[in-house]
Amino acid sequence: AQASVVANQLIPINTRLTLVMMRSEVVTPVGIPAEDIPALVSMQVNRAVPLGTTLMPDMVKGYA
């Protein structure tokens, strides 16, 4: 199954992502693919992302 990017902590709005904030997990619905984690580093989220939330393309500025 495809692993997705999941928030490893609460990520406040406009925060630049770092590796420690993200983990890969097989979840439904599928979000951003886990292999994109390196590309997500330093991108900003456009909303607060609670712990355990799957990151979707529309949550990350410049990803989609």
Rank of each mutant, 00 (worst) to 15 (best):
I13V: 13
V45T: 11
V5L: 03
L40T: 00
V41H: 05
K61L: 13
G62N: 08
E35C: 05
I37W: 03
L17K: 00
P33F: 15
A1N: 07
G31P: 00
P50R: 09
I11K: 00
G62S: 06
A3H: 10
G52R: 04
P38N: 10
I11T: 02
M59W: 14
S24C: 05
P12N: 09
M43R: 14
P57R: 11
V26N: 08
P50N: 12
T15F: 06
A34W: 09
V26K: 04
A64G: 12
Q44C: 04
M59N: 08
M56F: 10
M56N: 07
A48K: 10
M43T: 06
V26F: 10
M56D: 06
V6R: 03
L19W: 10
M22T: 01
V60C: 03
T15Q: 10
A48F: 11
V6Y: 02
Q9P: 02
T15W: 09
M43C: 04
I37G: 12
A48D: 15
Q2G: 15
N46G: 06
P12Y: 09
A39W: 14
D36E: 15
L55I: 14
Q9V: 13
R47V: 13
V49A: 05
S24M: 07
T28L: 07
I37Q: 06
A3P: 10
T15I: 11
V45M: 14
V20D: 13
R47W: 05
N8E: 08
L55M: 10
N14M: 14
I37M: 13
N8V: 11
R47Y: 14
M59K: 01
K61F: 10
G52W: 05
Y63A: 06
M21H: 12
V60S: 01
D36C: 06
P33L: 11
S4N: 02
V60Q: 01
R16T: 15
E25I: 03
M22F: 06
R47G: 10
L40K: 01
L19P: 14
M43E: 11
I13L: 07
K61H: 13
L40M: 10
V49H: 01
P12M: 09
L10K: 11
V5K: 00
T28W: 04
T15Y: 10
A3V: 07
P38F: 08
V26W: 06
T54P: 07
L55E: 00
L40F: 02
L55P: 00
D58V: 07
E35T: 12
V5A: 07
G62A: 07
D58H: 09
Q2R: 04
P29N: 05
P38G: 14
M21S: 05
A3Y: 10
S42A: 11
E25W: 05
A39H: 15
T28V: 08
G62L: 05
M59L: 05
L55C: 02
P50T: 12
I32L: 05
Y63D: 04
A7C: 03
V41E: 11
L40G: 00
I37S: 04
L17I: 14
Q44P: 08
S24I: 08
A3D: 08
A7F: 02
L19F: 06
P29R: 03
I13A: 10
L19C: 08
T18G: 06
D36N: 14
V26M: 08
N8Y: 03
M59T: 05
A1G: 14
M21D: 06
Q9H: 07
T28I: 11
S42E: 11
R47D: 14
A64E: 13
A39I: 14
R23T: 14
V49W: 02
M56K: 08
S42H: 09
A7K: 01
L17D: 02
G31F: 02
L55V: 11
I37P: 00
Y63M: 04
A64F: 03
N46R: 11
V5C: 04
A1K: 04
V27Q: 04
N46L: 12
V30D: 08
V45P: 02
Q2I: 08
M22A: 01
M43W: 07
T54S: 04
A7S: 11
I32Y: 01
L40I: 15
L40P: 00
L17A: 00
A39D: 05
E35L: 10
R16S: 15
Q9K: 12
Q2P: 15
P38K: 12
V49S: 01
A7E: 00
A1L: 11
S4I: 01
G62T: 04
L17W: 02
I32C: 03
Q9N: 09
V41C: 05
R47H: 09
L51Q: 14
I32G: 02
M21W: 02
P29E: 07
T54Q: 03
A34H: 09
E35S: 13
T54F: 02
V27S: 06
Q44I: 15
L55Q: 01
G52M: 09
L51M: 15
V20H: 14
L17N: 00
A7L: 03
P29A: 04
V6A: 03
L19R: 10
E25G: 09
I11C: 03
L10M: 12
A64P: 13
V27P: 01
V6W: 00
S4E: 01
V5M: 02
S42R: 07
A39Q: 13
I37Y: 03
A64I: 13
P50V: 13
M22W: 02
G52C: 04
V41T: 10
E25K: 05
V5G: 01
S4D: 01
L10Q: 15
S42W: 07
Y63R: 06
P50M: 14
G31E: 02
